[in-house]
Every structure is written in structure tokens, then in C-alpha cells.
């Protein structure tokens, strides 16, 4: 499996192909949302909603063989696209890898100016929540 760094490089070069055209970039992000794994209907509940996102985002995580498996969903397609990028980078990794990950692809593709400040805050909230899960599983593993 490729490293976090390699996957980020892949994403950056995909976005480079789209160039400066904001429109095609946004459409691309929306399409990415379609690649998300189906979210379990019974997990679509209040306690799984990430605070700090303007759109609704549900996130759950479990541990499979010491690695974290994330599942997420949103009521907006652009947000789903953003989540799918995060999941692509962070899914099925050990907690310490996730905790030490430097997610520089976001700045490198200029995500802030693509999605605007409100959604950028939401994106930060998602990353924080993903890392929080990693921290919780790490603590459990070390216990």
C-alpha cells in the first residue's frame, strides 16, 4: 500500500491536471464524492455528526487489525468529495501514522481558495475529528 506521502503526491498531480479552472475543480471534487463507501444508515445519528461543519458530516471509525477504518457521509456532494480525499489518504493506517500525517496536499492544491473559508473550517474540523479517533485507538492499543 502506498504511503501517505505518495497518495498526497498523486492527489496533487491530479489537481494539477485540472489547472487553474475553479469550475472543473469543483465539479471534480463533487464527482469524487460519489466514490465514498455506502454509509451505514443506523450510524446516521446526532452523536456521529462533526461539530464545526456547516453542512452535515457523519464520521465513524473502527479498528481492523490495528488499523483504522473510517466511514463518512455528508448531505452535500462537495463535502463528500472532500471527505473522500481525506479517507483516501488516511484510511486503513495505524493510529501513529495518522497522528503524525502532515496533510500538505490541502494547501498545495490551494483548497482554501477553491472551497472558500466556511468549507475550509469544516475541512479542518473533519481532520481534527479523524485524528481524535486515531488518538483514541492509540490510547486503547497502548493500554
Amino acid at each position: 500500500m502506498s504511503s501517505i506521502k505518495d497518495i498526497q503526491e498523486e492527489i496533487v498531480s491530479e489537481f494539477e491536471i485540472l489547472g487553474d479552472d475553479k469550475e472543473s475543480t469543483i465539479f471534480y471534487i463533487m464527482e469524487l464524492g460519489g466514490s465514498l463507501e455506502e454509509f451505514p444508515e443506523n450510524e446516521r445519528k446526532e452523536e456521529n455528526i462533526i461539530k464545526g461543519c456547516q453542512s452535515k458530516v457523519w464520521l465513524i471509525a473502527d479498528e481492523v487489525n490495528g488499523k483504522i477504518h473510517y466511514q463518512a457521509d455528508s448531505n452535500t456532494d462537495i463535502t463528500k468529495g472532500l471527505i473522500s480525499l481525506l479517507i483516501r489518504v488516511l484510511n486503513n493506517r495505524r493510529p501513529e501514522e495518522i497522528l503524525s500525517a502532515d496533510l500538505n496536499f490541502i494547501d498545495r492544491i490551494g483548497m482554501g481558495s477553491i472551497i472558500g473559508s466556511q468549507r475550509s473550517n469544516g475541512l479542518s474540523a473533519m481532520i481534527k475529528q479523524m485524528k481524535l479517533y486515531a488518538y483514541a485507538f492509540q490510547t486503547k492499543q497502548n493500554a
Binding site: K22, E23, T25, I26, F27, M30, Q54, S55, N75, T76, D77, I78, I115, G116, R119
Partner: peptide, 14 residues
């Protein structure tokens, strides 16, 4: 089938 935020953001891109 679409959220108004997404529609607004795509129109903004235009």
C-alpha cells in the same frame, strides 16, 4: 437531489 450549498458554490465558480 442537490444541496443548495453545492449549487451556490458551483455557480460561484462560474
Amino acid at each position: 437531489g442537490m444541496h443548495p450549498f453545492d449549487v451556490g458554490q458551483m455557480l460561484d465558480a462560474k
